[in-house]
Design a protein around this nucleic acid. Structure first.
Lengths: 300, 300
DNA sequence: ATCAGCAAGATTATCGTTAATCCATAATAT
DNA sequence: ATATTATGGATTAACGATAATCTTGCTGAT
């Protein structure tokens, strides 16, 4: 049988409580006692029972990470950042994926609460209804939204500035002389899309240019979306000399399509991504992108 | 205060135990009682306390996933598969990264044990010493190694067939007439490398060809490794008409270097990856690769 | 000499659930 | 008519640890 405090207590003659205090480095225990108990614990290969411990103590040193899709490189880099910081602080992570479904998100959060996580890091699903807001407001533990912003929970969000990022993209493209920019934006109801669209519009306004709505598309943000979108645009003979993408994944799809259509990058069409994923710098031709401190975001 | 069994028991007049049985769908409870208790539980917004529950019951419905690097697309796809299956079975995942360090791996596993996980899925760090073997053998819970093989724990491993995969790669390349194949293999001490090297040698033997050791490199398997290796090879004027890579990430680095050196793919040099990561099919020129059922692997 | 104060531990009460028993009463079998 | 078995539920005892409250023996101040 696995050693427990009682085992050590009996083996050393001290009380269970004293053993517990020693192993938690509580003061008010003599050096000598401490040594004896620690060495016995070592000898018996004692592994503390975190379950029992968190039964009695106020925290579990566990956080719940609610990811939209942990196989998406963007999220997985954020999670890596979280993981490192959690490790450093002695916390452990429960992870689950919502696949962008709020129902799953709610279910997952409840499971995490059931597990008594000390806090939640949420990469929230699209769509923000009254019900969601109420749900978030009722959470009995601290929580933050990573990378996305939810109305009414500004102070709970850790963000990079989407508006500025996209404005810079369009400023640059317009500055390069592009006048027909295909803009493959994200899902309409998430904060990132809204913010970035604002940035885009601001850049056009600054330059005194009109926006051609036919060149703007809101897509889910997968690789196929970029690929399809450019194929379609070319089929419909849309004219464009640059493509601004919602993320690097979409940009990959875009580049694939462009190459297949014998358009050279960046001579015929300039492509800009978003997120600066680890692999983006190794793409060929390499991808210009907006850096998002994913790792830092997770870490924070 | 959060509702607990006692709250419901007092509100309905039944005993705590009866409430517990109802909520666990234990039989031997009348329909009527069950309905009353369930509706009251709903009304009070009861969330079960999984900590207290797993204190008493033999399992925690939690598994520990020991990943080498969760931001590496290969692992993250495997983890996604695990996540889906776990979700389906009502299990939750604790995840941690070892960064390929066995010390961290051991530490992480101990933490998971402390949390009383029901089982472990391990993507083991390199290096297999006596100590590791003894450590694994001493684990008090079921465990499997995903994707890698550890001596002495064959039955604990879930594998794709590395040897066959690499043999097919070399058969194909040799069949295409390549006689100088740069082989960027993986870290020497992990099973995948060993198996694949075997496959490579077998293909050469079958074809009755000698192996040129100068074209074989064992690398850690990162993108930079592929990039550097090809740069070096070109600098040293090594002749080669194809590159077989340990994984798709290395292949990306390779392709980057080749393009920068104005070598066309696949006309001047043919490149083959391994793993068939999600993004590989969208690369341009697209990457030939060996499919590894990462998702299925995780799922299994 | 008396007593407050403290150090170093021991005792005891929980934490919220589940498992093992136990106890009526009703239904069925012999 | 008695013995057995089901049924539906109540009681009680853990699970392993921590926190709050007690003890006991010393110091040292008055």
């Amino acid at each position: 049988m696995r050693a427990k405090l009682k085992t050590i207590a009996e083996a050393t003659g001290f009380s269970i409580n004293t053993v517990s205090r020693v192993l938690r480095n509580d003061r008010r225990i003599s050096e000598k006692t401490s040594r004896i108990i620690k060495s016995k614990a070592d000898e018996l290969g004692y592994i503390p029972d975190a379950i029992a411990s968190s039964m009695r103590s106020p925290n579990t040193r566990t956080i719940g990470v609610v990811s939209a899709d942990s196989s998406n490189p963007f999220f997985s880099e954020v999670i890596k950042g979280i993981s490192e910081k959690a490790d450093e602080l002695g916390y452990q992570m429960l992870i689950g994926n919502t696949e962008e479904s709020f129902e799953k998100e709610e279910h997952l959060i409840k499971l995490f609460l059931s597990r008594k996580v000390d806090g939640l890091i949420i990469m929230p699903a699209y769509n923000t209804s009254e019900h969601h807001i109420a749900f978030y407001a009722s959470l009995p533990v601290p929580f933050v939204f990573a990378g996305r912003y939810i109305d009414g929970f500004a102070s709970h969000s850790i963000l990079h500035c989407d508006e500025d990022g996209e404005r810079d993209v369009f400023r640059y493209l317009i500055g390069q002389g592009h006048r027909s920019i295909l803009y493959l934006s994200g899902p309409e109801c998430i904060s990132n899309t809204i913010e970035r669209d604002k940035g885009m519009m601001e850049a056009y306004r600054e330059a005194g240019l009109d926006i051609d709505q036919r060149l703007i598309f809101h897509l889910p943000g997968h690789m196929e979306d970029g690929y399809q979108a450019v194929n379609n645009a070319i089929n419909k003979s849309l004219e464009f000399s640059a493509v601004a993408c919602f993320n690097d994944i979409v940009a990959m799809g875009v580049m694939k399509s462009l190459s297949e259509n014998d358009l050279s990058i960046p001579d015929d069409v300039e492509v800009i991504g978003y997120d600066n994923l680890m692999f983006s710098q190794f793409m060929n031709p390499s991808l210009s992108t907006v850096d998002v401190p994913k790792h830092k975001l997770g870490y924070a």
